[in-house]
Write a protein that binds this DNA or RNA. Structure first.
Lengths: 220, 220
DNA sequence: CGATTGACTTTGACTACTCAAAATAGTAAT
DNA sequence: ATTACTATTTTGAGTAGTCAAAGTCAATCG
């Protein structure tokens, strides 16, 4: 049994790997993500390498092995199913479920997970639009296109918000830019470093480029 | 924050204390309940005493302080609400929820607990009939009368099954002696070391004294 | 009264995880 | 080719929890 610490490291490595595929995850970045000092990450990653969950190159970084990825995906599946469950069944706000799920993801058995999955009717995305990894196999590759990449006049659908901080999620909520919503891009001026977008039936909002980059979209 | 290990020790001390009130819980018994060797229990209890959660008499045993009891009750509340939730909402069998709840009781936040409590309509007992401690204050003292104490001819209601092992719970299920059921005591022969009981609408079953003692009752 | 027994405590050692701070290795700049 | 900078690794130490086994206490029994 992997400890919840190990599960956490693997999940973090997976997520960092997603952010920049085809590169090793450097220890500084990993330490930051896990919330430990770099030395601790080095030590842990060497242990993970010994258990065959990651491959590690000194001064290069870490990458998940097939086995490590398997485990990371299972943790992520639990995390995201729990998030959706908390929103749909217990009525929590989507801005607060991430923190709750951080704990629960390590405590849920396969049996309970299966019940939750069934109750929610085999969902494919969590409340933030993050894909829920299937029980077996890899998840389908997700769109990497964000609001910041959209052209003026385009009509798109909000697919995913890739920042779990409650403040940002609440802001997105107020704007009406929650996943599933269709919106029109009114302007995207690289010089002004901002994007103007109008969610269907709502008022136009202006996002800075950094914020816009966190809102992923798909063709409407 | 109390670690889940600490929470577990406190819960265990509380439960052992319930089994024999007004005595200290000896370290052997506690170690057994927690699943560690006696030396470990001694070490841990001394640490708990230092944090003011228990009072400890060397070679005597341990007892919860007010603060320790407070915490133990909170853990027990989580455990039992989770059990009921797993049965009522996720449809798990009452014989398997105890094990599930052992993990979840340490991972559930107050906010989630409150939602579960509301969803279940502020229940007062879990699937086994064990009382759910209130959010604040002590639980009402529960009946200590078991099937083994009943007289022939009595009509009683099953209140509680005080053995969480799946095998026993499944057996109780097959007999139809689940909490809430009204039954008639057909015989209680101390010499034969057994009790015959007839659940309403079901067939008569005979329990050995040890089994009968685990089935707590109240007047019908 | 010893001697025995059984429960309890102590000791020493080990695993898992962590940090602070010193050492090192590349990388870039002078 | 030094120097300086930054990320990384190493080292030493600490916390939390655990076990095995040796030691201690107190009750009981002959």
């Amino acid at each position: 049994m992997a400890s919840s610490t190990v599960e956490d490291y693997l999940k973090r490595i997976y997520l960092e790997q997603q952010r920049s595929p085809d590169t090793l995850v450097p220890m500084g970045r990993l330490a930051e993500a896990v919330g430990v000092v770099p030395g601790t990450a080095t030590t842990m990653v060497k242990a993970l390498a010994d258990s065959g969950l990651v491959s590690y190159e000194p001064r290069g970084g870490a990458r998940l092995t097939r086995g490590g990825e398997q485990l990371a995906l299972h943790v992520l599946r639990r995390h995201r199913l729990v998030e959706l469950f908390l929103v749909k069944v217990l009525g929590l706000d989507w801005s607060e479920v991430h923190a709750e799920a951080e704990e629960l993801e390590h405590a849920i058995s396969d049996k309970v997970l299966e019940r939750i999955d069934a109750l929610l009717d085999r969902p494919s995305v969590d409340p933030h639009g993050d894909p829920i990894p299937p029980a077996k196999g890899r998840p389908a590759p997700a769109s990497r296109r964000s609001l910041a990449d959209c052209e003026r006049g385009e009509s798109i659908r909000i697919a995913r918000v890739s920042d779990q901080s409650p403040g940002f999620l609440q802001f997105i909520d107020r704007c009406g830019l929650t996943p599933g919503i269709v919106a029109t891009v009114d302007a995207n001026d690289p010089q002004a470093d901002s994007v103007r977008v109008r969610p269907r039936g709502k008022e136009t909002v202006t996002l800075g480029a950094a914020a816009a980059a966190k809102v992923l979209v798909e063709v409407a």
